[in-house]
């Protein structure tokens, strides 16, 4: 196994975030258990991305705290944090021509000091990560020649090379066709680490997540298993559309129908 099991617990307490007097996040408190695949859903502007950005320390909360392993994340040195949490953010603009191999190797950055070179362990990890993300056959291609789905998988491989216990994904299936969406979610679900993913597609959340957090208007509306959370009442109230809830006969997972 690539990863050691450590009881990682991420905790958000009374988290608030305000920009120019507009309150984006209001009093968010939640706990994320280790090893689970957590989906975050909610309408546009409900604060999903903002909350994730605070969790991976791109933004600083106005008040409240985020603790990783009972330690406030802002007290953790950047390298240490990068060894515990990897992120595939929504826009990963890649400039110039990097090869896939070079890019995945960048996932090893948090483990490197000024004078350290890439050793055989790094090359092994990079190879494993590329195989896991199904981009090994592209190792020597340059990024600009890849499709959207392939690029996403390369970014995922880079995050896997960080060998963290937590992986944060912001809308990982955006712009992907259905085959690549399902492949990516399958791949992520099998990882033995904690996954926190903001998702737009509720049926994907229903099919893959162990737990779903519903956000609405900057607050956590509900948290629970897909069965508990994805109900007609909740969805109609939060997403303001008519919803029919049924079961996908092929997977036995919840399947949602929308109408207005």
């Amino acid at each position: 196994m690539l990863w050691e099991r450590v009881s990682d617990i991420l905790q958000l307490q009374q988290l608030e975030f305000t920009v120019e007097e507009k309150q984006i996040l209001k009093n968010i408190s939640l706990t994320i258990n280790e090893g689970k695949f957590i989906g975050i859903i909610g309408p546009n502007g409900s604060g999903k991305t903002t909350m994730l950005k605070i969790v991976y320390r791109h933004l600083k909360q106005t008040s409240g705290s985020v603790t990783l392993h009972e330690k406030e994340i802002w007290d953790i040195p950047p390298k240490k944090l990068a060894q515990q949490m990897a992120v595939v953010s929504q826009d990963s603009p890649v400039l110039f021509d990097f090869t896939v191999k070079e890019l995945v190797m960048m996932g090893r950055t948090p483990y490197k000091k000024w004078l350290s070179t890439d050793n055989s362990e790094d090359f092994n990890i990079v190879e494993k990560s590329m195989k896991l993300a199904n981009v090994f056959h592209l190792a020597d291609c340059t990024l600009n020649n890849l499709s959207g789905g392939e690029k996403k998988r390369v970014m995922l491989a880079r995050a896997l090379a960080q060998q963290t216990n937590i992986l944060v994904l912001d809308e990982p299936t955006n712009h992907l066709d259905i085959e690549h969406q399902l492949n990516l979610m399958d791949l992520v679900k099998d990882l033995p680490i904690t996954i926190i993913a903001a998702l737009h597609d509720l049926n994907l959340a229903a099919a893959f997540c162990d737990e779903v957090i519903v956000m609405n208007d900057g607050t956590v509306y509900m948290q629970g298993t897909p069965q508990q959370v994805l109900t007609k009442q909740t969805l109609e109230e939060v997403f303001r559309v008519q919803v029919g809830v049924s079961t996908n006969p092929y997977t036995n997972k919840i399947h949602l129908y929308y109408y207005t």
């Binding site: 950005k53 320390r57 791109h58 949490m85 990963s92 890649v94 890019l103 996932g107 960080q162």
Partner: peptide, 10 residues
């Protein structure tokens, strides 16, 4: 790779 990604690499 962008400011955000670079920061998440420590």
């Amino acid at each position: 790779l962008g400011e955000e990604t670079a920061a998440t690499l420590g």
